[in-house]
Structure formats: structure tokens, C-alpha cells
Design a protein around this nucleic acid. Structure first.
Lengths: 142, 142
DNA sequence: CAGCATCCACGTTGATACTG
DNA sequence: CAGTATCAACGTGGATGCTG
């Protein structure tokens, strides 16, 4: 890490002076954020909303494989954390628009860094995985 | 995103031309990586190993609240993806050392960006959450 | 010291049906 | 169109006991 990481670095000092107050880990903001966007759909929705506002069914069509339930839950979660804004239009056929908040937009930046890493090293991970696969085609099998 | 994001950006074009081949989302490297490090312990172990190599029980003591099971699983997962290297020393009391691979070290960089964001905006998220809390002390409750 | 096997609790995801 | 409610399946995380 950069060292900008609150008290976390001190917890992981090289000598591990104490049994370690690992309760602290629970409040680690990094892990917290990672778990927030690490679910199946959040990042996808954030990226999508990073382009422009979307209506509910528009998002639903845009992702398609997501269920209404999960789309609702994902949006609610992001809204709950102040990353997404929900605006209801009291039209006759009800319409709801979702958009990133300023906070949500700032998240797109560091997400890009990780995205670059993922694109850059995704093949490396895939290679490492297949290297451990049980049927990689090891010629020294017998 | 930066736009360096392989085919993903085209999937999320603002007009959503088609029902969208969302099968593609499954291979989204970003989501994949996020889910990889988004679990409860992976990032913690990576950060810890980013400082120096550790032995198994050393890590176990270092985190303490983690069970052997989860520590083993986490390490195996990271090893499987080529992020961590496992070296066994055939000493009489068996000893195993874990360390980041070069690939694992590169992950620390983008992780720092997200860490900075998390540290920077963690309070914002916390504030947003408590703002939605059922007992925030809304004075306009009557 | 390092690690596996088993059983269990829980959260997440998803399919389906229903509502305003 | 937007959303809720219910039930089922699965994955993750954890407690415990055993092995080399």
C-alpha cells in the first residue's frame, strides 16, 4: 500500500509485536470497499451508470442476465452507500432514473487502475489457473 | 473506466443497441479481479505478504481471527492464481513459507489507488449509510 | 508446525409469482 | 414500468477434531 492507509499498516508491521488487534481489520476501509464492489453486479452497474443515467428496466435490459431482485438490491446497496442517486418521476407509467453521485464518480477513477491491472494481468491469472488445472495436458502423466 | 478496458466498454455503450450479449460480463476481467480480492481475507494476506514472506502460523497469528481453514483456502486461492508462492522447507518441524510472486506485487499498485479512495471516502460512505439508518435521529419524524 | 476433513450457519444469488 | 415477497440452491466463512 501507499502508506496512506490509516492504522492498517501499523497492524501489519513486519514484526507482528502483539497477538494483533485484528478487530481492526473489520474496519479496514480497503477490505470494506473491496467487498462492496466485489459482488457480482455492483461494479457493472457503476460502470454502466458512469456513462449516463439509466432507468430501471433500461438497466435490466442492459444486463439482461440479472434478475429484478438482484438489480434492485444492487441499486439499493449502491444508493445506500451514497454512490448512486435514485430519482422517481411520477409519470403515469412510473419511471425511475438512476445516476452516479459525485462520490460514485470518484470511485470510477481508482476502479480504472484496477481495471487496467485486470486487463493487463488477466491472462497471467488465467495462465496460472490452467497451470494448476487437473487436466492441463501434462505429458508426464504416465 | 479508462477505455483501456478491452471489449467491456463496447458492451456498455450508451445506446444499448442490442439485448446485449451479457455472457461477456462473466469474462469481465475487472469483475473477476474484484471478486478475487473482494473476499474477506485475500486482500489482507496480500498486503501482509507485501511486506515480507511469512510462515503459515505466522500469518495465522498475524490475523488471529482467521481460521486455519480460511487461511489455507485463501493462500491456496492466491497461489492458484499465481499471486502467491508457496515454499516448503523439509525441516523436522515442517515449515512453509509464503511470499508474493512478481505478479502479486504488481497487484499492490492498483490496490493502493483503491486503498487511497477507500481511506479518502470511507467516511463519506459511512455517512451515507447512517443517513439511511432507521434511527438516525430524524427530527422530522412526527 | 502445517494442513485436511467434516459438519454447520449464514449471506448471496436466482427463479417465480404477485402488486401498484 | 418498477418493485416486493417467497422459496430454493449455492458459495463463503467458521468450529472442531484428526493427521504427518
Amino acid at each position: 500500500m501507499s502508506g496512506t492507509h490509516t492504522d492498517v499498516p501499523s497492524m501489519v508491521s513486519a514484526s507482528l509485536p502483539d497477538p494483533v488487534p485484528v478487530e481492526e481489520y473489520e474496519q479496514c476501509p480497503v477490505t470494506d470497499v473491496l467487498r462492496r464492489v466485489g459482488d457480482k453486479w455492483s461494479i457493472l452497474v457503476v460502470v454502466l451508470l458512469g456513462k449516463r443515467p439509466y432507468r430501471f428496466n433500461e438497466l435490466h435490459r442492459g444486463i439482461e442476465t440479472i434478475s429484478q431482485r438482484m438489480l434492485t438490491r444492487t441499486l439499493r446497496g449502491l444508493e445506500h452507500d451514497g454512490l448512486v442517486h435514485r430519482e422517481v418521476f411520477p409519470t403515469n407509467p412510473p419511471s425511475v432514473e438512476y445516476r452516479l453521485t459525485p462520490l460514485g464518480r470518484t470511485l470510477l477513477v481508482p476502479l480504472s487502475a484496477l481495471a487496467d491491472w485486470a486487463v493487463e494481468h488477466g491472462p497471467d491469472i488465467a495462465a496460472a489457473r490452467s497451470a494448476h488445472a487437473p487436466h492441463t495436458g501434462m505429458t508426464s502423466q504416465g
